[in-house]
Nucleic acid binder design. Structure first.
Lengths: 344, 344
DNA sequence: CTGCTGTCTGTGAGCGTTCACAGTAGAGAA
DNA sequence: TTCTCTACTGTGAACGCTCACAGACAGCAG
């Protein structure tokens, strides 16, 4: 492969015109080869491909976008407050999965952080101006104004986790939180635990609501009365798990298990239990949620619910591209899996 | 602010032409206002700005890029093997910092992952075709072919951490690894420790080499002979820290301190020490590096060296933009800080 | 009056691509 | 033959913007 620009300075890159001349055909034919190769004779296609190889031609996406009106890029929009982004390993897995799934379609991912009101406004403008074809939205908190704005502007949008409080017609991909919670609580009961507390996520997030719902369903199934003294809420942070466990222990010293709505919070719970002199799992069993690196890092390692992050990111990209292609919004719910470790 | 396209479908956005008509001036004048406002009368500028507000105009970057030859976007390129990306919290902080620093200049960040050879080739093409104006490179391993390729293609490039084995003329921003290591080892000696082992990073990374060098310098200063039985290498992963500590204990049971080249590895070291029945810090003091979330998450919490990630990301962006603007490559080295916690 | 600055403004051209259209050639049917 | 159909190819015209240029007008000097 001989690039026509030697090492060193940045020469002007070859255009479709150069390729056409090199291949002895017209711009149109080259363009057709570039876009699927329909209505092109095999010999012409061959010549064009050879010319592309020889010249090192790469399509100028700006020129293409200018006329097609599409940017062939998508945004990955994060509206969480900053700390969560750092703390939560799930974001990383998701981000990486989406980047790779998009790369397979040759679509670059633009990372966008909208933490402040100001950033939110700028980014909304940027997106609605058509600089991306669609948006992968990571923001589970309800009432997020940006989701509504984008939806109303007709921007293809896929959320991670079921958005609360937004009209239906917005696509989302989520793990089956409720079912995962059910599995975990059933598992705890099957171990002979009878006094199972819970540390939920924020109740304005689907993960907060659904996992609590699963917990209540299984207890009801088992004929255990719902006792709100052993239900506390956290914000998915480690510190909030620690605080939550302390409240639980104070309100119900006879606790013999805790279902925690995230691994990070579960780490905090372990710390608090340790400080209170309770052994895990002998005295108190602890079940987490996410199967993040925190789960194996914890000691004892955490029994948890695995969220299928790789599938989630793949599905998000698939649904988004379908929507960009004109299909209707869709909701995808993926199964979770119980992972047994030392803490139960 | 009245957008001329109501909620619902995606109407065609206003062009510079619409703004010109609305303001009663020519395209040229609008363009001048958009690009700094030189040679524009105050009244014309006022009219244009009002028209922009009224129409909700946002510049079409594709059209602009087509003619300027610049994309007004930069790539954030990750060439680490995938696991590190997950495990290492530093990447997140860096990614976030760079995204924000760029956003302040209204420049979007394109996230690029080049884990496999295939991805590497595709991304190199994409970049050298001019689809980004510059690249923020995160890949500390030496001999990374992509850095050399990009440099030779004349693409503005700033690495995070000093690249080893590449000709000089590549910009980088790094924490002062050697000095940080010196601080930590001095701190350990000041605590009365006499037998200080070390778990280094990979010795083909600057962090691996420099931190070890700092360790050796301080020991030499203190008149302690270098003993290679208490020097082991890890790969920055938690597991490698655990394995490293086990080797250290086997080779030198009289160890009373360990300097570990990353917090994550230090977590592993803590695990191994705990299993071996050594108390931290009573029997063995442990010093980490990074001041990542892992440092506070560990128990006991880790004394560590803080890397100024916020400043690093800011500097990377600043140096990159300067280079895009035509300035010469530059190297920036930033000071670290010793953070004392429970482990020493 | 002419000529020279300097500031400000409008206009045509063109960036590299796709799209619509017109046109060619060859195969098969009438 | 002639007409139609299909497969293929080339050509202008956009897309929305910036840039270079030319022109207008004012102020001031000669």
């Amino acid at each position: 492969m001989t690039m026509n620009n030697g090492a060193g300075g940045r020469r002007r890159p070859p255009t479709i015109h150069d390729v056409a001349r090199e291949a002895g055909v017209s711009r149109g034919t080259v363009s057709r080869v570039l876009n699927g190769g329909h209505y092109v004779s095999p010999s012409a296609a061959e010549a064009v491909n050879a010319a592309i190889r020889r010249t090192g031609y790469v399509v100028n996406r700006h020129a293409r976008s200018l006329i097609t009106g599409r940017s062939d890029s998508v945004g990955f929009l994060l509206t969480e407050p900053q700390e969560r982004f750092f703390e939560d390993p799930n974001f990383n897995v998701l981000l990486r999965g989406c980047t790779q799934a998009l790369a397979a379609h040759d679509i670059p991912l633009l990372l966008m952080l909208a933490g402040t009101e100001d950033e939110r406004r700028r980014i909304t403008r940027y997106i609605t101006a058509g600089h991306v074809d669609g948006v992968l939205l990571v923001s589970s908190h309800s009432g997020d104004p940006i989701a509504t704005e984008l939806r109303e502007a007709g921007v293809p949008l896929v959320a991670c986790g079921k958005p609360i409080g937004i009209g239906s017609k917005v696509s989302y991909v989520a793990a089956d939180d409720r079912d995962g919670a059910r599995d975990m609580v059933r598992h705890l009961l099957a171990q002979g635990r009878r006094r199972v507390g819970v540390v939920t996520g924020p109740l304005d997030t689907p993960g907060g609501v659904e996992r609590l719902a699963g917990y209540r369903e299984v207890l009801a199934e088992a004929g255990v009365d719902y006792d709100e003294r052993i239900v506390v809420s956290g914000d998915y942070s480690r510190a909030s798990g620690e605080a939550g466990a302390e409240r639980l222990l104070a309100q119900a010293p006879d606790l013999d298990a805790v279902f925690v709505a995230s691994d990070l919070m579960a780490q905090g719970v372990l710390t608090a239990l340790h400080r209170a002199g309770r052994r895990v799992p002998e005295d108190v069993a602890v079940g987490g949620f996410d199967d993040s690196p925190a789960a194996t890092a914890a000691s004892p390692s955490l029994t948890t619910i695995r969220q299928p992050w790789d599938r989630i990111s793949n599905e998000m990209v698939r649904v988004l591209l379908a929507q960009i292609g004109g299909e209707d919004p869709a909701a995808v719910i993926l199964p979770t899996e119980l992972v047994k470790r030392e803490s139960t």
